[in-house]
């Protein structure tokens, strides 16, 4: 170094060059981004309205959904039954409210099952690797190849269409995407230093899987879980449209299916329940996309 340096005065105390932004926890940041997403908030509001209606509605609006109450095929607004009646003279509004309860219950139950199966299989495959991985991935591939609706139809038909059986059938055919995602996350995270550190201090496999890796894989899984509720609702609607619904319960898909032969006489009978399915799933998609944007902000542009 040149000797000039030694003659120089000591550097003066400098102000810190960068202003450190106020520390905000990542979770809070995510929520802030979510709140600011107008589409997602709209979806959340619609969803809350639908859920509250289907919980409280049947208690307040006590018209029986499966009994003839008025002239068949009455259009909306021409009787005390606001949305009119279907081909059997059943109240459409009562069907909508009670069907919402069934549709949403099956949607959530099937989604929970989807996530449970998917996460378990994906976690085991990704964590243990080797033959466990190979075998479980073969099973996943098998369920991916199986035409999901047809398989669910077979299961529901052979085991009778109760609400439980329908939810189980949907869960069994829907978990593959969750399993693949969970596996990929596990493969990525299990190589991280903090996992190695946990392992080195003697953490057992089950602790590593459920307490260490899974929480870190949670963000993308939450998004998939949210979206799988929407898929499950669509799936249930498809099954009940085909006539595979619990005979003792109304559901939106069944309403569309029942009224389909009468579309020329009753446009509303197929339009309104279908619209209800569409709005519910749309609301869930909006919330899911909002979560996705909030959790992966850098992908927002896409």
């Amino acid at each position: 170094m040149s000797d000039r340096a030694t003659e120089m005065p000591t550097p003066p105390a400098l102000p810190t060059p960068t202003t450190v932004p106020e520390a905000v926890s990542p979770t809070r940041q995510t929520w802030q981004m979510f709140y600011q997403n107008r589409a997602a908030m709209l979806g959340l509001c619609i969803l809350l309205v639908i859920i509250i209606t289907s919980i409280v509605g049947p208690l307040l609006y006590t018209v029986p959904p499966r009994e003839m109450v008025w002239m068949p095929l009455t259009p909306p607004g021409q009787s005390e039954y606001l949305l009119g009646t279907d081909y059997l003279g059943r109240d459409l509004l009562a069907g909508l409210i009670n069907g919402g309860r069934v549709t949403i219950t099956i949607g959530f139950a099937a989604a929970v099952l989807t996530v449970l199966i998917g996460v378990t299989i994906g976690a085991l495959a990704g964590f243990f690797g080797g033959w466990v991985d190979t075998t479980l991935m073969k099973v996943t591939e098998f369920f991916q190849v199986l035409p999901n609706l047809l398989f669910a139809m077979v299961v529901v038909m052979l085991f009778s269409p109760t609400l439980t059986n329908i939810a189980i059938a949907i869960g069994i055919v829907s978990w593959t995407a969750t399993a693949r995602l969970t596996r990929a996350e596990f493969l990525r995270i299990r190589e991280m230093d903090y996992v190695k550190a946990e392992r080195s201090i003697g953490a057992g496999n089950s602790r590593l899987i459920w307490r260490v890796i899974l929480p870190n894989a949670a963000p993308p899984l939450i998004i998939v879980a949210a979206l799988s509720i929407g898929s499950a609702i669509l799936f249930e609607a498809g099954l009940s449209f085909l006539g595979l619904s619990d005979p003792n319960a109304m559901s939106w898909g069944r309403m569309v299916g029942d009224n389909r032969p009468y579309i020329l006489d009753s446009v509303w009978g197929v339009t309104i329940p279908g619209l209800a399915i569409f709005l519910t799933v749309l609301a869930i998609s909006l919330v899911g996309d909002g979560l996705n944007d909030a959790i992966n902000p850098k992908l927002r542009q896409r």
Partner: peptide
């Protein structure tokens, strides 16, 4: 470069 310079003096700022 002043914040990293060991020779910085008043004028540099």
């Amino acid at each position: 470069f002043a914040p990293r310079c060991r020779n910085a003096f008043a004028l540099c700022l």
